[in-house]
Design a protein around this nucleic acid. Structure first.
Length: 270
DNA sequence: AGCTTCGCCTGCTTGC
DNA sequence: TGCAAGCAGGCGAAGC
């Protein structure tokens, strides 16, 4: 599932090929993939992509004349790049929902098997207001996190998953972060305030390492050129139920927390 | 208001 | 072996 490191990798892979190219044709179906109140992608035709960037878990495309498209990949979304004058490329059609043809015979395709992703097209976007997302772990400090955990009763894991406080963490990296910080995922937010600094620095460390390894491919995630990520081999807890903790050897436990599979070491996370 | 659960959706895994 | 139920989960909406 594309979280911050995966989206960062995708965005970096798209910047050079896409920036400064004009949209020649754009199509997206079904309309259920649009976020409420979004314009249709046809509105982008004739506009030039001036910048590709990441905001939380969203890939964001900025255009001139002014316009913006945000892509949230949900669980199984993919943004793949094809050269339309390369007859050898065999692009699957299954789950292909979006096609963006650009100058220079480039085609950006949007695939999403489960269709949990969504796309938002608008003249401009206020991310906090329109997408309900807060700063990512690289954009906030421990004081901010502390302030937002105070008095909260929900488990720290659930609070980290909420994109409103801190954006970018999903199920994999929330588990990995809390393991790194040695914090039990069931700890109530208010009880984790004193460990805000450690949690934040763990999040940054984990995310940086994951970016270096180009994200985690569990099943669907791919880079724009179709390659898999490599960080899945370095997970300490996610997907390691029953296997020995890399720190203390205790079997990793898997529980359900706020409806999410949650992996942790019952011995060294407290 | 804060927190949890539900529904969306498909494909892989599990169990009979 | 084959089929159906179970499970996975990001996110918004609904429910408590």
């Amino acid at each position: 599932m594309p979280e911050l490191p995966e989206v960062e990798t995708i965005v970096r892979g798209l910047q050079r090929p896409l920036e400064n190219r004009r949209v020649v044709r754009a199509r997206l179906r079904p309309t259920g993939l649009y976020r409420r109140s979004s314009l249709r992608v046809g509105w982008l035709v004739g506009r030039r992509i001036v910048r590709v960037e990441r905001v939380g878990k969203n890939a964001v495309f900025r255009f001139d004349p002014p316009g913006i498209m945000t892509v949230n990949l949900g669980m199984t979304g993919q943004l793949l790049l094809f050269s339309s004058n390369d007859p050898g490329h065999t692009a699957p059609k299954k789950h292909l929902h979006g096609r963006f043809c650009l100058e220079g015979n480039l085609e950006l395709r949007y695939y999403d098997a489960r269709r949990f992703g969504y796309i938002y097209v608008a003249p401009s976007c206020d991310f906090a207001k329109d997408l309900h997302i807060g700063p990512d772990p690289f954009q906030c400090d421990a004081r901010y996190l502390k302030k937002n955990l105070e008095g909260r009763k929900a488990p720290i894991k659930s609070l980290l998953l909420s994109q409103r406080i801190v954006s970018g963490l999903g199920n994999i990296y929330a588990d990995e972060t809390l393991f790194d910080a040695r914090v039990d995922p069931r700890t109530r937010g208010g009880r984790a305030v004193a460990r805000s600094r450690r949690i934040l620095s763990s999040a940054r460390r984990i995310l940086e390492r994951a970016i270096v390894h180009r994200g985690s491919t569990i099943r669907d995630y791919r880079q724009p050129d179709g390659a898999e990520g490599g960080f899945q081999h370095l997970h300490a807890v996610y997907g390691r139920k029953g296997q020995p903790c890399v720190r203390c050897g205790t079997p990793i436990k898997k529980i359900v927390l706020s409806g999410r599979g949650t992996h942790f070491c019952p011995s060294c996370q407290s």
